[in-house]
Design a protein around this nucleic acid. Structure first.
Lengths: 107, 107
DNA sequence: TAATCCTATTGATAATCGTCAATATGTCAA
DNA sequence: TTGACATATTGACGATTATCAATAGGATTA
């Protein structure tokens, strides 16, 4: 199923999730690492919950290692979704930008 | 005040609002015109409510004419917000794209 | 095997949000 | 000025969602 712009926007439409995304940019972190980075703002189940939502729209990649699960931001997916937005809602600008042609997928 | 990515995403995070945005792409429509385009899915106060949210983050422009208010999609704002997203969350791709340098504003 | 650790799930609660009916505000026309 | 029209606002209601406490599910370690 394709990630449509509404699901993409809903995944981004939360302060906590965007903070999590910032922490996952260019780095792999375990859930507990992330909880630490959040500095007490949210607890472990909440972080898990947000990671699941991000994973559902392909905005994070996961790597399992024993009892750990390492997450990282999927930059290509984010860029592709932004590309869909611009092509849908800013046709006058779409021609000027270069974005991945990847067809985003989700669960 | 700057339009931050969370507010931008929240404005996009609704099916009805994205449908309204699609109708306002490259064209000026009055509120009632929009209500007609929505084909009974939502009523006039609801359309007004959504237009207000889009206006608050600068995603639509408004032109007043007598008792009419004409709305249109602000493509540049949308593109700029996507640019902020890509630069924030996809640095590996940001260099490849060209997006307006406009600093988005909101109410 | 038992204990410990990491993460996910469940259930509950509060807050946010989309929608509508009713009404208010403001503008044009008769 | 009065009535009709276009849009915005208010208040209420239901649905969704973010959060936490408690607990379950696996995997490692002692």
């Amino acid at each position: 199923m394709n990630t449509n712009p509404v699901r993409f926007a809903k995944a981004l439409a939360d302060e906590t999730r965007q903070e999590i995304m910032a922490h996952l940019c260019c780095v792999w972190l375990s859930v507990n690492d992330l909880v630490d980075k959040m500095e007490g703002k949210v607890n472990q189940p909440t972080v898990s919950h947000h990671l699941k939502k991000l994973e559902e729209v392909g905005l994070v990649n996961v790597r399992e290692e024993g009892r750990f699960r390492y997450y990282t931001l999927n930059q290509e997916q984010l860029t592709a979704c932004c590309g869909v937005l611009v092509r849908s809602f800013a046709p006058d600008y779409a021609a000027q930008i270069i974005l991945p042609d990847t067809i985003p997928t989700e669960k």
